[in-house]
Amino acid sequence: MAVEMLSYIERKSPVHQLTGVTKLVCFLIWSTVAMLTYDTRVLLFLFLFSICVFIVSKVKLKEVAFVLLFILFFLMINNLAIYVFSPQEGVKIYGTSHVLVEISGRYTITIEQLFYQINVTLKYFTVIPAAILFIVTTNPSEFAASLNRIGVSYRISYAVALALRYIPDIQRDFRTIALSQQARGIDMSRKEKLPRRIKNAASIIIPLILSSLDKIEMISNAMELRGFGKNKQRTWYRARPFQKIDILTLILFTLILLVSLYVTFHDGNRFYNPFS
């Protein structure tokens, strides 16, 4: 069914070819940089770079559009909240105040505030595509193998992989249950008032939990019957050896990390200040 989102998308692309470990490490580097820096130049570079990677990965925008929109919605709320609670944050950071529009008291819009919020937005834009890309281009089993290789216990790795694997299943179940409950007259659409809708949602979630619990019991039995958890170590059928491309990518990302950190911190400030 066409409702699967955030599940592995099989393609032939250089991004898919990388081992799970490489992608995981790169993703961690990427997030670290994006979290540490507020330097607009670095952020802009990262943003453009992630768009390039996205194109290389051959994942279509359409396939991840829903999640993307969902996150953008939260981004908007976040931006509004920053403005409401701290409208002069930019002035504090950059130390100058260029007034753009005069509004009563502290809600005066300044270029500094706008610039600051653009930076925050850019941070989102650098991390989100990377995160989505990581999830949709990494085969869950291979991902588990990677986690295990960087030292995470294989039980936890497998649990994560199974969770990723069951995302499409649960989405499918959710849809079936929602439809059949709708057929009994449970309205989830906007015609119903909000408290009522929340109550109605319970009538979908309870069967979803119950049928998921059934599945969990079945799969844990099946795993145990085939010897899962017997030894301290296990091997992975899908494990892939490092290739040249992996090493090159890791070097590239380490360089990006170092350069961005240098550019960000060489003047002793996380922020790039165009106003001084």
Binding site: R226, G227, F228, K230, N231, R234, Y237
Partner: peptide
Amino acid sequence: AFALENDG
């Protein structure tokens, strides 16, 4: 291969 993996 699952059972084999668990055997290492």
